[in-house]
Simulated scan of single mutants.
Amino acid sequence: MTDEEVLAEFRAAGALLEGHFILSSGRRSANYLQCARVLMNAERAGRLARATVQKLPRELRQEIDLVVSPAMGGLIIGHEIGRALDKDAVFLERPEGRFELRRGFSIAPGQKVLMVEDVVTTGLSSRQAIEAVAAEGGIVIAEATLVDRSAGEVELGVPFYPLVSINFPVYDADQIPPELAAIPAIKPGSRKQ
Rank of each mutant, 00 (worst) to 15 (best):
T2Y: 01
E4Q: 15
E4M: 07
V6F: 07
V6M: 04
L7F: 12
A8W: 03
E9D: 14
F10K: 05
F10H: 04
F10S: 06
A12H: 05
L17G: 07
G19E: 12
G19Q: 09
F21M: 08
F21N: 06
I22D: 05
S24N: 10
S25P: 04
A30L: 05
Q34C: 07
Q34W: 00
Q34P: 02
C35R: 02
A36G: 15
V38M: 05
L39K: 05
N41E: 15
E43Y: 05
E43G: 13
R44S: 09
A45S: 13
G46M: 08
G46T: 07
G46L: 04
L48G: 11
A49R: 04
V53F: 09
E59S: 13
R61K: 15
P70I: 01
A71T: 10
M72A: 14
G73M: 07
G74D: 08
L75Y: 04
L75S: 05
I77G: 04
I81A: 03
G82S: 08
A84G: 08
A84R: 01
L85M: 12
L85V: 09
D88Y: 02
D88F: 02
L92N: 06
R94V: 09
R94F: 07
R94S: 10
P95E: 14
P95V: 11
E96G: 07
G97E: 10
R98H: 11
F99Y: 15
L101A: 10
R102Q: 14
R102N: 10
R103A: 09
F105S: 07
I107V: 15
A108P: 00
Q111N: 11
Q111M: 13
L114A: 08
M115Q: 11
E117K: 06
V120I: 15
G123N: 11
G123D: 11
G123A: 12
L124K: 14
S125Y: 00
Q128N: 12
Q128C: 07
I130W: 02
E131S: 14
E131V: 01
E131F: 00
A132Y: 08
E136M: 01
I139H: 08
V140H: 03
I141L: 11
I141C: 04
I141D: 03
A142I: 11
E143M: 14
A144F: 01
L146R: 03
V154F: 00
E155N: 08
L156K: 02
F160Q: 02
F160L: 11
Y161W: 05
L163G: 05
L163F: 04
L163D: 05
V164Q: 00
N167Q: 12
N167A: 14
P169D: 06
V170D: 13
Y171F: 15
D172Q: 10
A173G: 06
D174G: 11
D174E: 14
I176Q: 10
P177S: 08
P178I: 02
E179K: 02
L180T: 12
I183N: 08
I183P: 08
P184L: 10
A185F: 02
K187N: 13
K187T: 13
G189L: 09
K192F: 09
Q193F: 13
Q193V: 08
